[in-house]
Design a binder for these strands. Structure first.
Ligand code: ZN
Ligand code: ZN
Ligand code: ZN
Ligand code: ZN
Lengths: 141, 141
DNA sequence: CTCCTAATTGCAACTAGTTGCAATTGAAAA
DNA sequence: TTTTCAATTGCAACTAGTTGCAATTAGGAG
């Protein structure tokens, strides 16, 4: 999905198309993976040095609210953002070596079922960072 | 479990018993539930006004590291901490009305099994805040 | 094209939490 | 008891992110 499509979609929900949002979306779409707010600011400022960080954080929050982008805290000190893909996925993160393994949304299907059936609760189980130990680090420890 | 027991256990792991840690643990144990760093500072300062926030955050990080306490971000703007209970539990949080439902650790058993079997990954699935919609808010929406 | 207004921006001040460093102190050894 | 030294604290400066408000602007109506 391209920046213009997101902007069009946002417009239909009553949000405005601004140069800042355009540039921010451009950078997020180009990066293909997880990116921090700070990295977005750095990249946008190469073309438009004036950009204010509030606009970036507010745009990111809007994109998260609308479901276009997933925020994730990998414990590095700043949240990362990624374009939402459907079907979605999760990340296993080794707390020893930092290795990351992508797993598909299906792992949580039994949890979702149980929460719906037993608690009548409709959970959002999108894009988790699940910490733990990878194969190698289990053997070492 | 009482503060003195935690302190003893910490000592055996090479950490020191200090008045600050004693008072912080006292407050966490007394509160019986989730408490924020700021609330801990406020309560300890009633008796010991000098307490510095760095000591609190460092103590909390230590207690999390050692597994005595679980940190959880309920999205209120500051992380909450709770004494670790075994078996552990999770919290369902309604994103509309804020209702919280406690669920036991078992819900994630199938996830843990699958991650171990298919990815050889040993996940930490402790004390999650799972956002979503409660029964009432599903009907409303 | 011009006007209007609510949405958005920039800014500065703020909150939550972290970090480097010098001063203090717990606790173990002598 | 005194000495010793690493662990811990307080402090001040820092990072990530949020917020209130005045100024700007997108975009629709006339
Ligand atoms: Zn991802
Ligand atoms: Zn590993
Ligand atoms: Zn809890
Ligand atoms: Zn609800």
């Amino acid at each position: 999905m391209q920046p213009t499509e997101f902007l069009k979609d946002l417009r239909q929900r009553g949000h405005r198309r601004t140069p800042q949002r355009e540039m921010i979306l451009q950078v997020i779409c180009e990066c293909d993976g997880h990116i921090t707010a700070d990295e977005i600011i750095t990249r946008v400022r190469k073309r438009y040095p004036h950009l204010n960080k509030s606009a970036v954080y507010r745009t990111l929050n809007l994109l998260v609210q609308t479901g276009f982008v997933n925020p994730t805290d990998f414990g590095s000190g700043s949240v990362t953002y990624e374009i939402h893909r459907d079907p979605h996925h999760h990340h296993l993160v080794c707390r020893e070596c930092g290795k990351m393994i992508e797993v598909d949304a299906g792992v949580f299907a039994p949890v979702e079922r149980k929460l719906r059936d037993e608690y009548a609760f409709a959970p959002d189980l999108h894009h988790f960072a699940i910490f733990g130990l990878c194969r190698k680090c289990q053997k070492k420890g």
